[in-house]
Computed example of a mutant assay.
Amino acid sequence: MEKVKILLAEDHLVVRNGIKLLLDTQQTFQVIADVNNGKQVLDLLDSGVETDIVLTDIGMLEMDGMQLIQELAERYPQIKVIVLTMLDCEQYVTRAFESGAKGYLIKNVGAEEMIFCIKHVSNGGRYLCEELSMSFVEKAIVKNNVQPIVSNPVDFDLSEREQEVLNLLGEGYTNQEIAKMLFISKRTVEGHRQNLIEKTKAKNTPALIKFAVLMGLIR
């Protein structure tokens, strides 16, 4: 079975040696070289060295990982890049993938996940480490819980008049005030309010207003 060739770029010698030692334990991997920065990666490739994977940090001197990803995408598009870094910000992740990276790992990733990532990417896949994936999902859940869902009054079978009453209730007006503003009787307003409660399945007026805000029916 042909081995996956890996070129490692990491400016911390101890970290680089540790990663290389891990990868060398895999029979299907071959670390062909390990270097300090992106420039050295390009120098090796320009000299004729061939690799399948470049595993690179982002923060390196002379040429950082982001610059390296862009250069490889232009000059060696067949080479797949995996980022291995301490930087876990969404901006870095997004920029890395936009620039052409196929994988993104943070340095506290487990050995099994790193090995899986390299195999997955070498087979044509893309990979974002589990810790970052779950972090982004949790942020999305919180965001969705805060932001209202935009709904159409038609979805709840609300008439134009009921929507007007709902808007005014949301602004804090009383039934009597709404009646005067819409030139209808107070009893008619109460009827519209009761219809709104029934159509939205709210328990009472405060619950109706809360539901309407969450669903984007009022602001």
Rank of each mutant, 00 (worst) to 15 (best):
R161W: 05
V109F: 05
I178S: 04
D88Q: 09
Q176I: 08
I149N: 14
F97W: 04
Q70V: 13
K119A: 13
R161C: 03
P148K: 01
G124Y: 03
Q78E: 12
E131G: 04
V165F: 00
A101Y: 04
N144S: 08
T174S: 11
Q91V: 10
L72T: 11
V81W: 04
Q78F: 03
A96T: 05
N108G: 12
K102S: 15
H120N: 10
I149E: 11
K107S: 02
L105W: 08
S159M: 12
E113D: 08
T94Q: 11
E112C: 07
I106A: 00
V93F: 03
N175Y: 02
G103T: 11
R161D: 04
D88W: 01
I141K: 12
S99L: 14
G125S: 15
K107M: 04
N145R: 15
A73F: 01
K119Y: 07
Q147G: 03
E112I: 12
E71G: 15
Y127T: 13
S151A: 09
N152V: 01
K180E: 11
L169K: 00
D88Y: 01
G172N: 03
S135V: 09
D155E: 13
V81M: 07
N123G: 06
A101Q: 14
I69P: 15
I79P: 00
F116Y: 07
E160M: 03
E71P: 11
E162W: 03
I115S: 10
K107G: 05
E138L: 09
I115C: 06
D157Y: 11
P148F: 02
N144L: 14
A96F: 07
D155G: 12
I79M: 09
S151Q: 14
E112K: 15
R95H: 08
F97D: 09
E112T: 10
I178E: 02
F116I: 08
L128T: 03
C117N: 02
Q78K: 02
E131K: 03
Q91R: 14
G110S: 09
E98R: 03
E113W: 04
G170Q: 04
E131R: 10
E160L: 14
K139A: 05
M134R: 10
L72Q: 09
D88R: 09
K119P: 08
K180A: 07
L72S: 15
V150W: 00
E112Q: 11
V81R: 01
E164I: 00
V154K: 10
E112M: 15
H120I: 02
S135H: 07
D88H: 11
G103R: 13
N145P: 06
I106N: 01
Q147P: 02
C89A: 09
K139C: 06
N167L: 00
N123F: 14
I79E: 08
N144P: 04
E98S: 06
